[in-house]
Write a protein that binds this DNA or RNA. Sequence first.
DNA 1: CCAGCATATAACTGTCGAGGCATATTTGAT
DNA 2: ATCAAATATGCCTCGACAGTTATATGCTGG
Lengths: 114, 114
Amino acid sequence: MSDALLWTALADPHRRAIVALLLERPRPVGEIVEACGLSQPGTSKHLKVLREAGLVRVRQDAQRRVYALDPGPIAELDAWLAPYRTLWNTSLDALGDRLDETAPDTSEKPAPKD
Amino acid sequence: MSDALLWTALADPHRRAIVALLLERPRPVGEIVEACGLSQPGTSKHLKVLREAGLVRVRQDAQRRVYALDPGPIAELDAWLAPYRTLWNTSLDALGDRLDETAPDTSEKPAPKD
DNA sequence: CCAGCATATAACTGTCGAGGCATATTTGAT
DNA sequence: ATCAAATATGCCTCGACAGTTATATGCTGG
């Protein structure tokens, strides 16, 4: 489908934070609310956007709704990225002076900031 | 810089189209205007957003301004994506055939922890 | 300097989305 | 049946942003 939903979903920093949270483990809404410091309805809305983008799925457990990450759409993102990856692999030398901006130790832990 | 600019820049479909155009080759503004079917000022505004996100650079050639893609920020996107890549390695390796990950010979930067 | 092309900026408008509060809905417990 | 807990939805406001037209800026040749 159109990846417009995917991009708009990930465009919001709160939603990226939620996605990062769910990368660690599935969580009920309450935990997510507390983690991202938003109101519960606001968080629910973000979760709805993420659901409609296919980024998360819900499992019902008593009154709780446990949200979990769905890797599919993120794989789509990776596919979108693929053509560009060749670009910086090949032109790494030419533009390398611009590329070494990030600290060399940023690839150790899966700790998405933001 | 903050990747918020990067995400918001790529959130717009016209801007993604421009980025795709510049992947093929650098282009002056006129070409981009014609390609994405927007007004010239509108296109210029999008280019400004892409510039401020670091996604494109400009080279002045007489009256023309030739825009070219800068792979740096897209590499940041790839870095953001990295933790999630492991996720679909484990769960659905059906689409995992494209994951050469970052090139193995990029000894310049320590390879993502695989 | 002047004319003309190519691009950027300004000012304005309409739309969309984020965030808040109040409320509805669903589920479990007593 | 009733109540409480957990989550979703409706309504509202406000600010951000895309897109337009008109105008300014910059560059080049004559």
